[in-house]
Simulated assay, not measured.
Amino acid sequence: MTSPLPGPATDPVADLSALLGELAGDHQADPPPATSKPAGDEPVYRNVEAFVGDYLAHVVERRLASGPTSGLNWCPRWWAHPEAISRLYALWRAWETLRVSDPQTGMSIWWRDHLDPHLAALAAEYGPFSRCDPTKHTEPRPLPVELAPPEVLAQLPDATGT
């Protein structure tokens, strides 16, 4: 993704047009020739990794937490956190769906209803990235779980009797 800020030898109008095209879903991870733009319902990004690395990391602008500096908790190994990969996968699929199903307001809906709550949960004080920082990954710890007694499970409407 090109920087939205014009450099000394760039065209600010072209830079802004490119950024707006990316936000509208016209961006490809590796820009192809003009004739190979994906069909309307084909994904722009081939997988969640391409979506995070080629899109999300470039459009989300937040100060990152580091040491005593407050900011967004982020982990460079986001894919090593089960909750993060699940949420980021959901974000990618929602982005791909909304860009096609609602080209007029889908991206606004995606930011408001999808990205903002998921990013807040990932970066929260007790979220999956809370013990990481931009230069350090801390292995996730699953929640402690004890097996439920069979008599408790038997009370549930979908109990199979085993």
Rank of each mutant, 00 (worst) to 15 (best):
P8R: 13
P8M: 13
A9C: 06
A9E: 10
T10R: 10
D11N: 07
D15T: 04
L16R: 11
S17Y: 07
A18R: 09
A18Y: 03
L19T: 07
L20P: 04
L20R: 13
G21F: 10
E22S: 15
E22Q: 14
E22T: 14
L23N: 03
A24M: 09
A24F: 08
G25S: 09
D26T: 08
D26I: 05
Q28G: 12
Q28C: 12
A29P: 15
D30L: 11
D30W: 12
P31V: 02
P32V: 15
P33I: 13
P33C: 05
A34L: 08
S36D: 13
S36Y: 08
K37I: 15
K37E: 11
K37F: 13
A39N: 13
G40P: 04
D41T: 14
D41H: 10
E42K: 15
E42I: 02
P43D: 02
P43K: 04
A50M: 04
A50L: 07
F51D: 08
F51T: 01
F51S: 03
V52E: 02
V52R: 07
V52M: 01
V52W: 02
D54W: 02
A57I: 01
A57G: 14
A57M: 06
H58Y: 06
H58R: 11
H58A: 04
V59S: 02
V60S: 00
E61S: 14
R62Q: 12
R63S: 14
R63V: 08
L64A: 10
L64M: 13
A65V: 00
S66K: 02
S66V: 05
G67V: 03
T69Q: 13
T69E: 12
S70A: 14
S70Y: 12
S70F: 10
W74C: 05
W74Q: 05
C75L: 00
C75N: 05
C75E: 02
R77S: 14
R77D: 13
W78K: 06
W78C: 00
